[in-house]
């Protein structure tokens, strides 16, 4: 029996199984090495593995021996009007070559301005001008790294006055023009739908799913603005909300089984809680698989 079969991955859809993965945190290195095979794959922020050596590379190398990996960048600032940071791009390329990730993704956002790194995923107006910048940058990334990039739909708190197109149109055209894939963050859809009073289900129903290579799920925080309108914050610090699970089920019905990540980056819980969240997503994927097989 191969390692993949041993891990229950006999239905590989490619280099990464269409089941649930977890964000890899130093808090859990030991748990993962002691009790393997509870999740299908791991995702890391490459920025945390850009040091020369030490425990991060030691543990990532060991875990990579047994699991597929996804690199999910947070620092490339693809939506900036300014040129991409070539040093950062070269570091990403080096990590892709070293760890051979199955998936490689970034955000439809910007985070660097005048060389200052603002460490947040800042929103973009969906104009023709923005599209030209982003499409150019995505092409440059894919050319340099030699890999398809998945671009993630953002969660946003403010809107812009003059968009030329919707977010879905922007992402769909981008994938068609650059050949990039899309990372559909279902929590971000719920967060942005609440924040901008649009219909999350309609967004899922019209999303260009043929480009979706990965799905994200996460927990959000709640607040209100000065007008009393609810505002959700993409906090990654708690369980996935029931409304987001429902939206995820709706998504999986359309996309079919897809690699799905539980993102939990702050107030990180014990390993067993993360595994339970992953199992919940796996059940939804499995149900879709079974139902689909029954229809066939």
């Amino acid at each position: 029996m191969s390692l993949a079969e041993d891990m229950g991955l006999s239905w590989f859809d490619g280099p990464i199984p269409a089941r649930t993965g977890l964000g890899l945190k130093p808090d859990h290195y030991a748990d993962i090495l002691e009790s393997p095979a509870k999740v299908g794959w791991f995702e890391v922020h490459p920025e945390n593995y850009m040091g020369a050596g030490g425990p991060p590379h030691h543990y990532l190398s060991r875990i990579r021996e047994s699991y597929p990996l996804s690199l999910h960048g947070v620092g490339l600032s693809i939506g900036a009007a300014a040129p991409l940071n070539r040093d950062h791009l070269e570091r990403l390329k080096g990590l892709v070559e070293r760890y051979q990730p199955a998936l490689f993704s970034e955000h439809l956002a910007w985070s660097t301005h005048d060389d200052v790194f603002l460490n947040d995923l800042l929103p973009l107006p969906y104009t023709e001008e923005t599209f030209a910048h982003v499409a150019g940058h995505v092409g440059e990334v894919q050319e340099t790294v030699g890999r398809q990039l998945l671009l993630e739909n953002p969660s946003t708190y403010v809107a812009f006055e003059n968009n030329d197109m919707s977010e879905i149109e922007f992402l769909g055209q981008l994938a068609a023009q650059t050949g990039c894939g899309l990372l559909l963050d279902v929590n971000n859809v719920h967060v942005s739908a609440t924040n901008h009073a649009f219909d999350a289900e309609a967004y899922i129903d019209t999303f260009p799913i043929e480009h979706v290579g990965e799905i994200h799920l996460a927990g959000f925080a709640e607040t209100r603005d000065e007008a009393g309108a609810p505002v959700l914050i993409d906090a990654h610090d708690r369980r996935v909300a029931d409304r987001v699970w429902a939206l995820y089920e709706r998504t999986i019905k359309r996309t079919g089984p897809r690699p799905t990540l539980i993102e939990w980056d702050n107030d990180i819980p014990e390993w067993a809680i993360l595994v339970r969240e992953a199992q919940r997503a796996d059940q939804i994927i499995e149900k879709r698989r079974t139902n689909h097989a029954a229809i066939d």
């Binding site: 708190y157 403010v158 812009f160 901008h196 209100r224 007008a227």
Partner: peptide, 18 residues
């Protein structure tokens, strides 16, 4: 100037999240 929101044309609280 260019930012807005459905609930408030000058979304200061929302901008404060960033």
């Amino acid at each position: 100037e260019a930012i807005t929101s459905h609930s408030s044309p000058k979304p200061r609280e929302r901008f404060n999240i960033y």
